[in-house]
């Protein structure tokens, strides 16, 4: 079975590291982006990615443009949001997110969602 690649976007380095570490522990490849610039490069390269996890906290409004871009690329994604915020949730869903996850994430639940999304 070829390894699935998951794009992980988070401004906060430690969060990014932990997410990537968690995914790798479960047999996925994690491609990380801690800034819009890096994210843009990844999106330009059109590398094979299977899904994305996007932690929006810390980014400015431009993150939503990227979300639209990702959706247009046909890549399924989850938004990770700091707290339960209806506005953010609506916005995320409008931008095409499959679901909005509120921090802190529960590892076992995250793993299940990822598996469902990847059709495993």
């Amino acid at each position: 079975m070829s390894e699935k690649t998951i794009l992980v976007v988070a401004k906060h380095e430690k969060n990014l590291e932990l997410l990537a570490q968690f995914l790798e522990e479960h047999g996925y490849l994690a491609e990380t982006a801690a800034s819009i610039d890096v994210l843009d490069k990844i999106l330009e390269s059109k590398d094979e990615t299977d899904m994305a996890l996007i932690d929006v906290s810390g980014f400015d409004h431009s993150i939503w443009d990227r979300c639209e871009e990702i959706r247009n690329d046909g890549l399924p994604f989850f938004i990770i949001s700091p707290k339960k915020n209806r506005q953010a949730k609506e916005k995320s869903l409008n931008e095409g997110a499959r679901d909005v996850l509120t921090k802190p994430l529960e590892k076992s639940r995250l793993l299940k969602l990822v598996k469902v999304m990847l059709g495993e």
Partner: peptide, 12 residues
Amino acid sequence: EESYDVFHPSEV
């Protein structure tokens, strides 16, 4: 360790 909030400390 630096601070983080994506997972609960207990899980990390």
